[in-house]
């Protein structure tokens, strides 16, 4: 499963099934670039992970709807329900802990 790029049209559809990591990022946000690399590494290690990226600069409406006030913000969804979230860059180990908690529940 490749990292999928979301927009305000398809975001809800992309998070509605299974376990999904949603990365809300901004065009000029430097930490977002670092976090993007961490997600790419994770995808290379765990290719069946569902990762969705939403650019909040280009999609302010959906960012507002999901209460995003800073970037990067990471939401973890299980079958469309928000089960965990984090503001700021997360390390791979922290992400894996959340995967272990929710992906197989």
């Amino acid at each position: 499963m490749a990292i999928q790029v979301a927009n305000s049209e398809n975001f809800k559809k992309l998070i509605e099934q299974d376990f999904v990591i949603a990365d809300f990022w901004g065009t000029t946000c430097v930490p977002c670039r670092l976090f993007s690399k961490i997600l790419e590494d994770l995808e290379a290690e765990i290719p069946f992970l569902n990762i969705v990226k939403l650019n909040t600069t280009d999609n302010p409406d959906i960012a507002r709807e999901y209460g995003i006030s800073a970037v990067p913000t990471v939401h973890f969804y299980k079958d469309g329900q928000l089960v965990d979230s984090h503001v700021g860059v997360m390390q791979p180990r922290e992400i894996k802990e959340i995967i272990a908690r929710y992906m197989y529940s």
Binding site: I46, E97, A100, Y104
Partner: peptide, 30 residues
């Protein structure tokens, strides 16, 4: 680092599943 697909049997429902996919040594499963 390998992806494995396993069948598991256990009295614990979390580990009583078929076709479970995870990456060995990643810490993502158990």
């Amino acid at each position: 680092g390998d992806i494995v697909i396993c069948d598991m049997a256990s009295e614990n429902t979390r580990f009583s599943k078929k076709q479970v996919k995870f990456v060995v040594g990643s810490g993502m499963f158990q």
